[in-house]
Structures are given as C-alpha cells and as structure tokens.
C-alpha cells in the first residue's frame, strides 16, 4: 500500500484538531519551531532512530544537506536510495508529514505527523541537535 485511506487521514486530522493542533494537517511549513517541544516529539522516533548511531533507521547527526539514502554502510530501501531527495527543512517536513506518500516504498512504515506545528518543533530540535554537542562529538558515523 502506498497511500493511506482517506478515512485514516481524516481520523488523523480530527484527532490532531481535537487536540488543539495549530494548524492541523494543512501541509504548510511552520517556519518557527520550538526545540524543547521538538525533543519530546523526537522521543516518538526512539524505537528506530538515534542522533549519533545507526539503528533500524539511520542516525540523524549530519542530516541537513545530506542526500537521502547516503549514510555509508546503512542498508536503505531502493526507493529511498533512488528518491533524489536532499534533506532540508522543506523535504524533511514533506517526508515526516507522510513518509509513505513522499517516498513510496520506504521502509519507514509510519503514518507520519500531520500537525505542521509538531513537525516544525521536531525540525527545530533536529537542527539544534545537529549544531549541539551530541553531534559535534560524533567524529565519524557509527554503526
């Protein structure tokens, strides 16, 4: 399956809207994010991702400006390797909103984060982390 059912999308929108999300599932990029809130949102990624080492998903240090599917030694899906995406605020926002729609065939079987504000916060955290000590101490990508 490469796209979510309309009912599922609607349910996500309703849940986000009911929770007071601003603005829920608009797809718009919120330019200002809160890194503190983003850290809490990043905990959702903790089953598969870490900042400084590869797990089920690749590490996130050095993410901005990196070509998708390019972490050396990490086994990506063909879809991700061939996506021709370069990770920046716009491409990450689009991917996190709906991974399976943005890169059909990605192994990241996750419905996405429909709330633009939450995505902005998450990206703010990732940007801050990439500039912070945890990533600066990462001398070389670890596996």
């Amino acid at each position: 399956m490469t796209a979510r059912r309309p009912a599922t999308v609607l349910a996500g929108i309703l849940l986000a809207a009911a929770a007071g999300s601003v603005p829920a599932a608009t797809g718009a990029i919120a330019t200002e994010g809160d890194a503190g809130r983003g850290k809490e949102i990043y905990a959702r990624c903790g089953a598969c991702h870490s900042l400084d080492y590869d797990r089920v998903g690749p590490h996130h240090c050095g993410l901005f400006g990196r070509r998708a599917g390019s972490v050396e030694g990490f086994e990506y899906s063909k879809a991700m390797k061939n996506s021709k995406l370069v990770w920046n605020s716009e491409t990450l926002d689009r991917f996190i909103a709906d991974p399976l729609k943005t890169v059909p065939g990605t192994r990241m079987g996750y419905a996405g984060i429909p709330d633009a504000r939450e995505r902005a916060d998450l990206l703010a955290y990732l940007r801050a982390s990439n500039d912070g000590p945890e990533c600066s101490q990462m001398s070389a990508p670890r596996r």
């Binding site: 059912r5 996500g12 959702r44 903790g46 079987g109 996750y110 419905a111």
Partner: peptide, 19 residues
C-alpha cells in the same frame, strides 16, 4: 523506557498504514 516509548509511537504510526 526510551526504547519502549519509541516502540509505542512506532506501532501507533504503523497501525493505520497496514493494508
């Protein structure tokens, strides 16, 4: 606890995308 929290979110995100 971090792994378990992440797992909860991962399964929550997977449930709606299963065919």
């Amino acid at each position: 606890a971090g792994l378990e929290q992440g797992a909860v979110s991962a399964y929550l995100g997977a449930v709606p995308v299963f065919g």
